[in-house]
Simulated assay, not measured.
Amino acid sequence: MKTSLRFAALMLLVLPGAVMANEKLVQDKQCMGCHALKEDGAAPSFQKIAKFWKGKGNAEVAMVATIRKGSAATGGPHWNKATMPDQSERPLVSEAEARQIAKWILKQ
């Protein structure tokens, strides 16, 4: 019992840091220039994206491709006329970073 309580307490300390790290990554990669958490702007909100992809088995794979290569790489534009630029117009995003961002978005 003590071990599980310690683990739970540790997770309460670690998880907020992981969320903040993901938010910092999203900011560092300039995602927030077009996206916001709750409100649509130049691009759909992260909550809208999460809702769209909820329950779809290919969500993470498709999102990683779009995050790394832009809308054109995955048959975009996906949201009206807006297109996500490729990495020639924004900071480079590694495969691991894109996967981390996609997982964070899907939890919104």
Rank of each mutant, 00 (worst) to 15 (best):
M1G: 15
M1Q: 12
K2E: 12
T3E: 14
S4Y: 14
F7G: 07
A8S: 11
A8H: 03
A9W: 10
A9T: 11
L10M: 10
M11T: 13
M11S: 12
L12S: 09
L12I: 12
L13F: 14
V14Q: 04
L15W: 12
P16L: 08
G17L: 15
A18I: 09
V19A: 10
V19Y: 11
V19G: 08
M20Q: 15
M20C: 11
N22S: 14
N22Q: 15
V26H: 04
V26K: 00
K29H: 03
K29Q: 05
K29I: 02
Q30C: 06
Q30H: 11
C31G: 03
C31V: 03
M32T: 15
M32V: 15
M32Y: 11
G33I: 12
G33M: 13
H35G: 05
A36W: 12
A36Q: 15
L37N: 04
L37Q: 12
E39Q: 15
D40F: 05
D40A: 14
D40S: 11
G41V: 06
A43C: 07
P44Y: 00
S45P: 07
Q47E: 13
I49M: 10
I49P: 01
I49Q: 01
K51C: 00
K54M: 06
G55W: 07
G57F: 03
N58K: 02
A59N: 05
V61N: 05
V61T: 12
V61A: 15
V64A: 01
A65T: 12
A65M: 07
T66M: 11
T66N: 11
T66E: 07
T66V: 13
T66Y: 00
I67C: 00
R68D: 01
R68N: 01
K69G: 04
K69N: 13
S71A: 10
A72P: 02
A72Q: 12
A72E: 11
A73F: 04
A73C: 06
A73R: 04
T74V: 13
G75M: 04
G76L: 08
G76M: 05
P77L: 05
H78S: 07
W79M: 10
W79I: 02
N80D: 15
N80T: 08
K81M: 12
K81E: 10
A82S: 11
A82L: 05
M84C: 08
M84L: 11
P85C: 11
Q87C: 06
Q87M: 14
R90E: 02
L92G: 03
L92E: 09
V93M: 00
S94L: 03
S94Q: 01
S94D: 01
E95V: 06
E95Y: 09
E95R: 08
A96T: 09
E97N: 04
E97P: 02
E97D: 12
E97Y: 03
R99I: 03
R99A: 14
K103R: 15
W104Y: 14
W104C: 04
W104G: 02
L106S: 04
L106M: 14
L106I: 07
Q108N: 04
